[in-house]
Design a protein around this nucleic acid. Structure first.
Lengths: 306, 306
DNA sequence: TGACTTTGATAGTTTCTTCCTATGAACCTC
DNA sequence: GAGGTTCATAGGAAGAAACTATCAAAGTCA
């Protein structure tokens, strides 16, 4: 759409409104904090631009013409709206108010959001957060092209050039079926891992990629089948289909729902680093740091010891 | 109310909208028909004024910040409204559209308005006329102080310094009771007038003043009682209370309703000159002339001959 | 009626704003 | 790494808007 600039300025509108109120050029000029000739000139300009006489200047008193009257009310509205716009933009500069579009990966969203949302709402009551749940790659694209302000991802994934604030270290644990040979205390060692079939997520999940990489390094056999979420994965483990790696973040939620035991890995345990990331140099950086601080404060990663 | 000028210009808003659309300073500059540095400078100015960064300028692509997004939609609205305002003011300059506040004296209103209103509505379909019915003096004040654009009055009254367009010559006639000695054909002469008691309007009606002046000049006796409208006056004549002068304009309406005969005066007959009058030098002058022309065309003054 | 005040318009200057062209630094593409 | 993008910056010319001073016309009051 082609929006041409109106042939007048806001200042001219303001002067016109002032004169319509004062019905006196001098007083209007005083109220606008300019000299009377300046105001006269601007109004003459405005009338010229509109091709319409707005005021009749009798030496004794100013009279608003019909054209003037039709102009004044909308002019006041325009000025008022412009002022409101200033205020809105101003407070939008502070991300703590307004709308923030955020991304989050699927292996984090269902566990993190319920934890942090109440705190965010309470700490930033005037902030609206819109969350988009996608795998890392699409999030990265959305972040780069500006359709998201920030994303919650694992730093171990490839993100390109971003700034970030770490939210939590999220160690991986092994979920094993109840009443299986693996259903006992103590950290998982290499030997046990090798004799299990590991269920993993479908392609594209950074957590799945990490799990696969870990298993390959350790020589653990993977099942061909790929699940679409940590929830289904856990249910499959409970059903005895194999074992799986889970991020500690998900443990509290998933273990409640399934007959599995979770056991930590022997040190050094695999893990991911959850962080809030944004475009490098974004002016929102400082504000996003604050946001991240509140999120970090309320992110509870289950500590699996046993 | 104190409406401060917003700290930015409409041009800056336009540039911001253009950039938000093009997501590219150069293309936006082309669309705004300015050089790219000019646009950059204006946007920097705007951002400074708002204290908020509206766009992130990565060398590869522009991204709108949340503050920018909250600004763009209202900015578009402001620009659109400003444009609409231009159009409205423009067409308000042509009185044939918009609202016109008009005054009319009571001895004209009930007879003239039904005649001219349909024509006005038809000829100027986008014109709204607001009519105020008052005696000459208050109309004159209202005209002077700008609360009316024009008035329909008799030029014989004292109006001060106005421009005008004549609508009609309105000869006076004499209304006499049916079945009275005066109830016969032919113009009214001095002798007949002197032997009648003349009923007149209350003070302030210019028509009443003219009637009284005429009677005094001719030596006709006036009844003390003063009526408040031509209608009641006519009814009193029909009841045999005396005779009265009527403007021809009112004859068609009033004679239908009452048992009176109307007779012309001997030449030179008294009369009034109906005109549309407006403030001297008013920019509406040319338009009001057009309005008057249409009114003149549709003003029917009864021709009383007999 | 004549001095005085008040009205908005005009003239001449000065200051500030906006624009232009030219150029620079960072990034992408080939 | 050459060439073509991107937006930002610098310097200077043109324009807009402000100021002070003054004017002509109309109202006010003695």
């Amino acid at each position: 759409m082609n929006l041409a600039t109106p042939p007048f300025t806001l200042r001219q509108l303001q002067y016109a409104v002032a004169v319509a109120e004062a019905l006196n050029f001098r007083k209007a000029a005083v109220q606008c904090a300019v000299s009377q000739p300046s105001l006269s000139a601007q109004l003459a300009e405005l009338e010229g631009a509109l091709g319409v006489r707005l005021f009749e200047r009798d030496r004794s008193g100013v009279v608003v013409t019909p054209a003037g009257r039709t102009l004044v009310a909308p002019a006041r509205a325009v000025l008022e709206e412009a002022r409101a716009l200033t205020r809105d933009a101003h407070q939008a500069g502070d991300v703590l108010a307004g709308t923030l579009r955020l991304g989050v990966i699927p292996t984090v969203a269902p566990y993190l959001l319920p934890q942090v949302m109440p705190a965010l709402r309470k700490t930033f009551p005037r902030l609206t957060t819109l969350w988009r749940e996608e795998k890392t790659a699409p999030l990265s694209v959305a972040l780069a092209n500006g359709s998201l302000e920030a994303v919650v991802v694992a730093l171990e994934a490839n993100l390109g050039d971003v700034d970030h604030a770490v939210l939590a270290i999220d160690p991986f644990v092994l979920a094993v079926p109840r009443k299986s040979p693996l259903d006992h205390d103590g950290p998982v060692g290499l030997k046990e891992l090798k004799q299990s079939e590991v269920l993993v997520l479908e392609d594209g999940h950074c957590f799945g990629d990490q799990a696969i990489a870990y298993c390959e390094k350790k020589g653990a056999p993977q099942l061909e089948f790929r699940a679409t979420s940590l929830g289904t994965l856990t249910q499959m483990v409970a059903a005895g289909a194999g074992v799986t790696l889970l991020p500690s973040l998900s443990v509290d939620t998933e273990v409640k729902r399934a007959a599995v035991r979770v056991r930590p890995f022997e040190k050094p345990a695999p893990h991911r680093t959850l962080a809030l990331a944004w475009r490098k140099g974004s002016p929102l950086g400082p504000a996003l740091e604050k946001l991240a601080a509140v999120m970090r404060e309320h992110t509870a990663v289950a500590r699996v010891t046993s």
